[in-house]
Write a protein that binds this DNA or RNA. Structure first.
Lengths: 348, 348
DNA sequence: CTGTTAGCGCGTTCAC
DNA sequence: GTGAACGCGCTAACAG
């Protein structure tokens, strides 16, 4: 079956290719009669436009490149889902590149050499395909300034950032503050914190929220309550274990991701500390597993979907050469489950 | 900064565009001297090829369309990761469409009308972009014959199938059989089963494996041990509750997905049945949460990554007009965790 | 206002 | 090593 193009349509409808093009795009008036005739032939021959040819002339591909550092990491699908939602509504196509960072170099994000070459190749490929812009989806919020060069093509970073480039942020400080306010509302005052690695912006911002709540609610400050984890379940386990050994231990823990909260749950169980009656936990990320644990982990849901949409909006503005609209950083939302209890007065 | 093309290169290197093209593609011998000169200019001017123009002439885009029914459903990222691995190795690009089926119409897969139009639009868009083939990633293994028309372009289905088209299968029967063999090896004989919906091929195949093991190992057959669930955690909870009420209840359960296994765990806990000492459970899917539950759920891991790779291999053969090589259906692998115990003789 | 002719975009490739 | 046609659809310029 031969490919049929605009030329065949013109032939069968006994008009010129120009007329067919005008009918197709509504670029100019075409008499009702010829229009009908052309449309009928298009229908009959099952014409399918060739966007490649179209793009060559128009210099527009309506295609956005998406580079995911690792598609199988939990945040990526939901961010891309947001990207897809926006793309669908705006007739944009997504050219996806998956760097497969985790599988390629494991968790050693600092070792950029291991994937910088591949990342730059991905960008070059996308640029060759004439994408109109790129969205980069990191695995882990960190600085990747200088990692890639897009040769002036607009790029928007999510879950990471680069100096001088747009990146989408959400309100991490507020999230931590909200989590604290929630714990305080439940009667807690001795609240410990287990952070993620300090090379990450979210860690620092969440600390800000923590401190802000500490001062605002005039909570007792004990430096021993502050622990630095590394995002892993193991670190949550170990640090919670340590915290439970303190003589005047915290009644609640703000934990910067659900993975560490799992470790905390395990440590508590092993030490005979009951969650939530003896120890309340609040995590971050709203990972799927958090709902299935017992107790279910109360957690701050990160607005991944919205981040995807915002990234597209921002990118679109840059592509169109418009100023990027200032948007409020989206908020995290508290997902209430069973890992936080109202503290009973006699325990204080 | 003006876009520089092959013409500028030719100009600066004082050769014809043809020569530049030959240098670029190695399509023909070019004298060492001119080649050097051309390459130097290419380097200096930072030339980037325009794949759009290339594709127009060559009629090859090296692009594969991927339609995911829902990217946020657990199987999709891993299948696509396999697709990506193959794509990277073979210099193929991925044009991704996410139907967002779950968010669009929820779990009512039978209601095809709700997304058929969108699915067909997605196909048409991809065809307009001149993809060389399409991979369809379903959310749920079922028959979608007639849902879409690809107008002769090759398509390969994963996690669903359509009559007369290629689809990638894995060995579900063997998986169920292996799971049973594992339970038998642990001393179990009274083994119940909680299936998924019977409109799904995996359900039926896994039943086959179950029956095969039942007869081969000469296990006592009790029709009451067979329960039909609907894949949801709730159904696992309900059916396990019922099974625990039986006077001569099973000592182990083969459960067709981890979600129902979570429900089973909950039902057991509520009825004071201890997993695994009183009841062994084995699930399917190796969902992330299965590792974090206590006890961790022993489960059959579905070879999603390999399915993605196989889909690409198959598609490639079809694109090249070669016969699709007969490959062994990949196997599931047992992930041993803590939900299965050796049965103690006195319990029999 | 409706329809046509012809050149263009950019890289490939045949014929010389 | 080169000139020029070509792929396919768009669109400026022109004609009726």
């Amino acid at each position: 079956m031969k490919k049929i193009g605009i030329k065949e349509i013109a032939l069968h409808a006994e008009v010129s290719t120009a007329t067919v093009s005008y009918v197709l795009n509504g670029t100019r008036n075409v008499s009702f009669k010829t229009k009908e005739r052309v449309l009928k032939v298009i229908e009959e021959l099952n014409y399918m436009p060739n966007d490649i040819a179209k793009s060559l002339k128009s210099n527009k591909t309506n295609t956005i490149g998406v580079i995911a550092e690792d598609l199988t990491v939990f945040n990526a699908p939901e961010i891309i889902d947001g990207i897809n939602e926006y793309a669908e509504k705006n007739d944009l196509q997504i050219l996806l590149t998956n760097l497969r960072l985790q599988k390629r170099v494991g968790y050693d994000y600092a070792n950029t050499e291991a994937y910088q070459k591949r990342a730059q190749e991905a960008v070059s490929s996308l640029l060759s395909k004439q994408v109109e812009g790129i969205i980069y989806v990191g695995v882990h919020a960190r600085d990747i300034t200088g990692l890639i060069n897009t040769y002036e093509k607009p790029i928007v970073y999510t879950y990471c950032y680069a100096e001088g480039e747009s990146s989408i942020q959400y309100n991490d400080e507020q999230a931590a503050y909200d989590a604290m306010a929630y714990l305080v509302g439940k009667g807690h005052t001795r609240i410990g914190i287990i952070s993620g690695l300090m090379d990450s912006i979210p860690s620092r911002l969440r600390f800000n929220g923590y401190y802000k709540a500490m001062t605002e609610f005039q909570l007792p400050f004990d430096p021993q309550f502050i622990r630095i984890g590394n995002w892993s379940s193991e670190s949550g386990y170990r640090l919670t274990g340590e915290l439970m050994q303190l003589t005047n231990r915290p009644t609640a823990l703000l934990i910067m991701n659900d993975l560490m909260a799992v470790g905390a749950l395990k440590a508590a169980a092993e030490q005979g500390v009951c969650v939530p009656s003896d120890l309340s936990l609040i995590g971050f990320d709203n990972r799927e597993f958090s709902a299935y644990l017992s107790p279910g982990i109360t957690t701050m849901d990160v607005p991944l979907h919205e981040i995807g949409i915002l990234a597209m909006k921002t990118l679109r503005s840059k592509i169109d050469g418009q100023p990027v609209p200032e948007e409020e950083a989206p908020l995290c939302t508290l997902i209430e489950r069973e890992s936080v209890a109202q503290i009973e007065p006699e325990k204080l």
